[in-house]
Amino acid sequence: CGKASVFVYIFIYYESASLPNVAPSGTASQSTTLSDSARAWNAIDGKSDPVYYHGSCTHTAHDQSDPWWRLLLPGIYRITAVSVTNRDELAERINNAEIRIGNSAENNGNNNPRCAVIPSIPAAQTATFQCGGMEGRFVNVYLPGAAKVLTLCEVEVYGGTVRQTPTGPVSMPCLAGTASQSTTLSDSARAWKAIDGNSDPVYYHGSCTHTAHDQSDPWWRLLLPGIYRITAVSVTNRDELAERINNAEIRIGNSAENNGNNNPRCAVIPSIPAAQTATFQCGGMEGRFVNVYLPGAAKVLTLCEVEVYGGTVRRL
């Protein structure tokens, strides 16, 4: 299902004497996904089965630099502890992973403050790390270094709400934001692939968009179900031919003229490294159209994920 992330908050204070596992209420994503049986949500499915081949663990692509797994909570939480269940074999792959918690989407949340470093977790075991009430809506497990693989068989996050009750959907339901694009190369490269919740940057895994070859001024557009104040847009680039994204523009506004590409510009994307995600701050620009527009002749536009952060101004 496609998701365009939109956050709306009323600020209150809440504290629970018995803090629950809040991970199942969030949305999980990861840097890459090895296969359909290893998706990010497996880590919050309530099953701590450590046998990878039973199909309840996550797994990033092989030999990736700085792989990560991220939980987006439906508000800002005070996190007291995070428990991680390791797989039954190749247990050393978790060594030196970092748990990071905070409210910044910069670098996919991996720049947030660090709760703990995981020195190791024995095979098929669970370890709990105390976070001392750190506040945030992002909880990341981040494994820095080259040629790494990150597998998690369960992640539990214990905490209580600090400043959140949603007045609208925290994560918009499937295709409530509707994606379209100027042309489509094939059925496996349709516009909605950029909001399917899967940031796998390997184009041939089938979770990226792709316009027709050698098109003039290709574009991708998200139509939101109302007018939103957009604070930031994150774009995940493909793993090869990364230079194709160079000089694309993010445009936000309410005009459908020229398919929305005449709306005000939030940012120009100078480049995004292969298989990486970059976040662009839009400063609260208002609109119901969010476009990625690539001006010029003989261009191809591919997006492996687009995330849009903001709050409702007026629903239509």
Rank of each mutant, 00 (worst) to 15 (best):
C266I: 01
W41D: 11
S207Q: 08
F280M: 05
G136I: 08
G168A: 15
L224Y: 05
Y204F: 11
L90M: 12
G132D: 11
P270N: 09
V162F: 11
E154W: 00
S16G: 03
C115T: 08
D196C: 10
I12N: 07
H210T: 08
L143E: 06
G283R: 11
L73M: 12
L175G: 14
C153N: 02
C266W: 01
D217P: 11
T85R: 07
Y309T: 10
R244K: 09
G55K: 09
P122R: 05
A232K: 09
C1T: 12
Y52V: 13
T165I: 15
W41N: 07
L19A: 14
S56K: 00
H59L: 02
K193E: 12
R265A: 04
L150S: 07
W192V: 13
C115G: 04
M134D: 04
A298V: 09
E106K: 05
P144W: 10
L19K: 15
F129K: 09
G55D: 02
Q164E: 15
P295Y: 05
R163K: 12
F11C: 15
S65A: 15
V202N: 13
L223C: 05
P166K: 02
N247W: 00
Y53W: 10
A256H: 04
Y228L: 10
L90H: 14
A275Y: 08
Q125S: 15
P74M: 02
G132Q: 08
Q125D: 14
H210R: 10
R265L: 01
D200T: 00
G310A: 04
G206W: 04
Y204D: 09
T231S: 15
T279Q: 02
Y204I: 08
S5V: 12
V51G: 00
K3M: 09
K47C: 15
G206T: 10
H205I: 00
A297F: 04
Q64G: 08
G197T: 09
W41R: 11
A97F: 03
T209E: 08
T32M: 08
Q64P: 00
E257P: 01
E135H: 13
S180H: 03
V313H: 06
T27K: 13
A179T: 11
A176C: 15
C282V: 07
N254S: 14
P74R: 01
A17Y: 04
Y13L: 10
W41S: 13
V117Y: 02
S35Y: 12
T211N: 04
Q30F: 04
A298H: 10
A189P: 02
R114D: 01
G296N: 06
L175F: 12
W219R: 07
V300I: 13
S180K: 09
D217Y: 04
A123Q: 03
Q130W: 10
S16N: 13
N110F: 02
D200M: 09
T60M: 05
N198H: 05
E92C: 01
Y309I: 09
